Simulated scan of single mutants.
Amino acid sequence: MNGKVEAQLASLGIELPEAPNPVANYVPHLIAGNLLFVSGQISKAGDGTITKGRLGADLGVAEGQAAARVCALNILSQAKAALGSLDRIEKLVKITGFVNATPEFTDHPQVVNGASDLLVEVLGDAGRHTRAAVGVSSLPVGCAVEVDAIFLIGN
């Protein structure tokens, strides 16, 4: 099912990857009432490559932003798998971005902008959201960034 959000993706030259399968004992997405919760998505691209490393040591802000963008694409893939059409998204309520970083690194918000910017680019005003951007000492498989999301869904 193609709609206006899918058309926006195409106009931006973006092809969504397949929704990644869970790697542990959790579900990738869950609908509760009119909310869609998308589990944390790591910086694993559609071709299987993973952006790994720590911001402030191995990676710079631009590389972190690119990794966060990949997380956002995976979030949209999970949302499409859950809803059938991204046009059912009424509003992106919140994202939480986790940045694998050194203790001295303080540009977490700029890194997570990679996800925020993409989501607003694709969803327009419905993509404007609340968020948290936090630094952590490690992430699964050594990835650079992980992002989760909560959406308000319509019909």
Rank of each mutant, 00 (worst) to 15 (best):
M1T: 09
M1Q: 07
N2D: 12
N2S: 13
G3P: 10
K4P: 04
A7Q: 15
Q8Y: 08
A10P: 05
A10N: 11
S11C: 09
G13E: 12
I14K: 08
E15N: 13
P17A: 13
A19C: 13
P20R: 09
P20W: 10
N21C: 11
N25P: 09
V27G: 14
V27L: 15
P28G: 15
P28A: 14
H29R: 11
L30G: 06
G33D: 09
N34V: 04
L35H: 04
L36E: 00
L36R: 03
F37A: 12
V38Y: 08
G40W: 09
I42C: 14
S43E: 09
K44L: 08
K44P: 05
K44W: 01
G46C: 10
G48K: 13
G48H: 12
T49Q: 11
I50R: 06
I50L: 13
I50V: 15
T51N: 05
T51G: 02
K52Q: 07
K52T: 13
A57H: 10
A57G: 04
G60A: 05
V61M: 02
V61G: 00
V61E: 03
V61F: 03
A62Y: 00
E63R: 03
Q65C: 01
A68P: 08
V70N: 02
I75N: 09
I75T: 12
L76Q: 08
S77F: 09
Q78E: 11
A79K: 13
K80I: 01
K80Y: 07
L83D: 06
L83S: 08
G84L: 02
G84T: 04
S85T: 14
L86Q: 10
D87Y: 02
I89S: 05
I89C: 03
E90L: 07
E90M: 05
K91I: 00
V93P: 06
G97Y: 11
F98K: 14
F98R: 11
N100V: 13
N100A: 06
A101D: 04
T102N: 03
T102D: 01
P103L: 12
P103N: 02
P103M: 04
E104M: 08
E104R: 03
E104K: 06
F105S: 10
F105D: 00
T106P: 03
D107T: 03
D107E: 07
V111A: 10
V112C: 08
N113P: 04
N113A: 07
S116A: 11
V120W: 02
V120R: 06
V120L: 03
E121H: 05
E121G: 03
V122E: 00
V122K: 00
L123W: 01
L123A: 00
A126P: 08
G127H: 01
R128V: 07
T130C: 01
T130V: 05
A132V: 11
A132T: 13
A132Y: 10
A132W: 12
A133Y: 10
V134M: 12
V134I: 14
V134Y: 15
G135I: 11
S137T: 11
S137L: 07
S138E: 13
L139Y: 15
L139R: 14
V141P: 06
G142S: 07
C143F: 06
A144Y: 08
A144E: 06
V145S: 08
E146R: 10
A149I: 13
F151Y: 14
F151K: 01
I153E: 04
I153S: 05
